[in-house]
């Protein structure tokens, strides 16, 4: 008999409005233990609002959201006890050292001192900041601050880690460094809820991807299935000075189509950006 896997994160008709603007529109979502779930969409699509509702920072207008089985509105303290949060902006405390930032976090989560001390050292090593443990964080680069935020979010061993645009504004090398950290965290059994508008990030990291646009979830599946549904191959061509794309199930069909054309065209593998374009008619970053 297959064991029943309870979702760690669940939303039911979750809606958030700001006046006449619908930021999150009737969102139904279930994320199970061990997943890296990616929420992909352009800026302003509702990713961060969803993340803020799930981390108890924003109150939903209607619907329900549950984290670890606890309703985030009715039992926020319990819902928060098993989560770690890395917001998209840098919010480590510049007036404290790296060590003190982690110590404050451990104290806020009621960690026992001996365990906390051990975890702080382990996490500083994990994000390669051991040599800067006693430096004030205001002297850190953005990449270092982001790594410290990841260490802080993991210190109390949360069951769910919320990463809101974890690599936005970072250079490619630091971005890959953070991706490596995210994979390792997931391997150590943390479930990850990640929002991003970077296609590559969603493709490389996520087991399942939800595509959100204007607050609505317009697709949800494993990346492979999303690509399959759209077509694994794309033919890109110029039509009246505008780039146009056509999707094909296999390279042979795409090749036959290009051969029938009277102009230049390229064949490439499709990606999640193409899925988004096909669904919305727009690019993720417009």
């Amino acid at each position: 008999m297959t064991p029943i896997v309870k979702p760690l994160i669940k939303t039911e008709a979750l809606t958030k409005t700001y006046g006449s603007i619908i930021a999150v529109d009737n969102l139904d979502l279930e994320i199970t233990e061990g997943e890296i779930f990616g929420f992909l969409g352009p800026n302003g699509a509702g990713k961060t609002t969803t993340c803020r509702i799930l981390t108890t920072l924003t109150k939903p207008s209607s619907g329900h959201a549950f984290v670890s089985g606890f309703n985030v509105v009715e039992e926020p303290v319990k819902a928060k006890s098993g989560i770690g949060v890395v917001p998209q902006y840098l919010n480590v405390d510049g007036e404290l050292s790296a060590y003190e930032n982690l110590k404050l976090h451990g104290m806020l989560h009621g960690m026992e001192w001996g365990k906390m001390k051990m975890h702080i050292e382990k996490m500083l090593e994990f994000v390669q900041l051991s040599d800067r443990a006693s430096s004030l964080v205001k002297t850190f680069s953005e990449g270092m601050k982001k790594r410290l935020m990841v260490a802080r979010a993991l210190l109390h061993e949360p069951k769910v880690l919320f990463l809101d645009e974890p690599t936005v504004g970072l250079d490619p090398q630091t971005r890959r460094n953070i991706w490596g950290i995210i994979r390792r965290i997931n391997q150590e059994r943390a479930t990850i809820f990640l929002t991003t508008h970077y296609i590559e990030e969603a493709e490389v990291l996520c087991h399942r991807v939800g595509i959100i646009d204007y607050g609505r979830l317009i697709a949800l599946d494993i990346p492979e299935q999303l690509l399959k549904r759209t077509g694994r191959f794309v033919v890109e061509m110029l039509d009246d000075d505008r780039s146009k794309a056509r999707f094909f199930k296999n390279r042979e069909d795409a090749g036959r189509f290009v051969a029938s054309l009277d102009r230049d065209a390229i064949i490439r593998k499709s990606n999640l950006e193409d899925v988004f374009i096909k669904l919305t008619g727009r690019k993720v970053i417009d």
Binding site: L57, K80, L90, R152
Partner: peptide
């Protein structure tokens, strides 16, 4: 400005 207050708000404290 620093957004550090959110560290308190997302902690499991009343």
């Amino acid at each position: 400005y620093w957004m550090t207050f959110e560290e308190f708000q997302t902690a499991p404290i009343s």
